[in-house]
Each structure stands twice: as structure tokens, then as C-alpha cells.
């Protein structure tokens, strides 16, 4: 809230994440997994929707939002993911297809942000670290999946595994430049 400069933050990516969480957590209405699980779902939902609200409605934040460079169109990602979820899923129910759609969409939701970073020559420390930790966080899921595969019976989930792997791959190029800039102690820039 103190840092009102949101240059370099993609509203499109934030909106896609809000959509990801809204479609994934429909089970909150029908199933209970654990208190931790429910609390984390509420945190993901409230944080993603409040970021979108801030970027659209907050006067100071909106002013610094780099709208002209953030031109990626939602439908190019949302529609293919929806079609893929309708074709490839484990059960043909509304909740399950929405859940699968959210898995596919999450894998590619970072793309508008990566495109915006590439267009913005001067990458903010905040934005660079945000993207790095978002990718690092998701890549840890892969370790978790390997662990669960060996410790839990019947733990085989191709849809989440392949999507999570694709998601991490999309970050690979960014990771390379981020770690290089960190190692050489220079400001992060991406090649045009």
C-alpha cells in the first residue's frame, strides 16, 4: 500500500490469477479438507481480488499502471484453456471441469506479465522479485509431487504434473536472466 508505483505490474496477469482461484476453489461450497486449506484458499482469493481492485480503482496506483504496454488479451489464454478443460479432464462435472480449467490457466497466467517485463526496459526490483518468487514457489510443487508419488499410494496426476511442469518451463528464461543479474550484481534487464 505504501509503494504506489505499479509500473511493470501486469493487471492482466493479476486478473487471470483472480479467475484461476475463483474457478479452482468452488469446492469450498461443497467439501471441507482442513482449516489450513480453507484459510489459504481465502487468502489467495482475497489477495488476488484486492490487487485487481487496487490497480483498477485506487487513484495513486491506477495512475502509475503501465496500461499502454500491458496489451496481452485475456481471451487468447482463457478460451484455449476452457476448450482444453472441456476435452481433457478426469470427470465431466461442472466443478471438475472448472477445476481443470484453473489448472491449465494458471500454467500460462504469467505470460502477460513476462511480455510486459520484456517491453519495460527498466525492471523494478519489486516486480523482478515478485516474478522470481512466484515462479520459485510453483517449482517447489514439483518436489512435493515427487515426494508424494513415493509416499502416497495411487498418487498419479498427469493433468497437474504436466501443467505445473509447463508453468515452471515458462519461467526458465526469466530465471536465467534474474539469477545472472543477481550473480553479477547488476540491474535486471531482459533482451528485447
Amino acid at each position: 500500500r505504501k509503494n504506489t508505483n505499479k509500473r511493470g505490474v501486469s493487471l492482466k496477469t493479476q486478473e487471470l490469477y483472480a479467475l484461476v482461484f475463483a474457478t479452482r476453489y468452488l469446492d469450498m461450497f461443497t467439501d471441507f479438507i482442513s482449516l489450513y486449506n480453507t484459510v489459504m484458499k481465502l487468502i489467495f482469493l482475497s489477495s488476488s481480488f484486492s490487487i485487481v481492485w487496487y490497480m483498477r480503482r485506487h487513484k495513486l496506483v491506477r495512475r502509475s499502471y503501465d496500461k499502454d504496454h500491458d496489451t496481452f488479451r485475456h481471451q487468447f489464454l482463457v478460451l484455449p484453456c476452457l476448450i482444453l478443460a472441456l476435452l481433457i479432464h478426469e470427470q465431466f462435472t461442472f466443478k471438475e471441469v472448472m477445476w481443470t480449467f484453473s489448472i491449465y490457466l494458471e500454467a500460462v497466467a504469467i505470460l502477460p506479465q513476462l511480455v510486459l517485463l520484456q517491453r519495460t526496459r527498466n525492471i523494478d526490483n519489486l516486480t523482478g522479485q515478485y516474478v522470481f518468487f512466484l515462479g520459485a514457489y510453483r517449482s517447489l510443487y514439483i518436489l512435493n509431487w515427487i515426494y508424494r508419488y513415493f509416499t502416497e499410494p495411487h498418487y498419479v496426476h498427469w493433468i497437474t504434473w504436466i501443467s505445473g511442469f509447463v508453468q515452471t518451463l515458462l519461467y526458465a528464461d526469466f530465471f536465467y536472466y534474474y539469477l545472472n543479474s543477481w550473480k553479477n550484481n547488476v540491474k535486471l534487464t531482459l533482451p528485447a
Binding site: D27, D31, K95, T160
Partner: peptide, 10 residues
Amino acid sequence: REWDDYHDEL
């Protein structure tokens, strides 16, 4: 299978 078999991930 039950819903939370693999939907327990966030």
C-alpha cells in the same frame, strides 16, 4: 474417488 484425493493442493 473422493474430491479431496488430489484437490487438496492449492
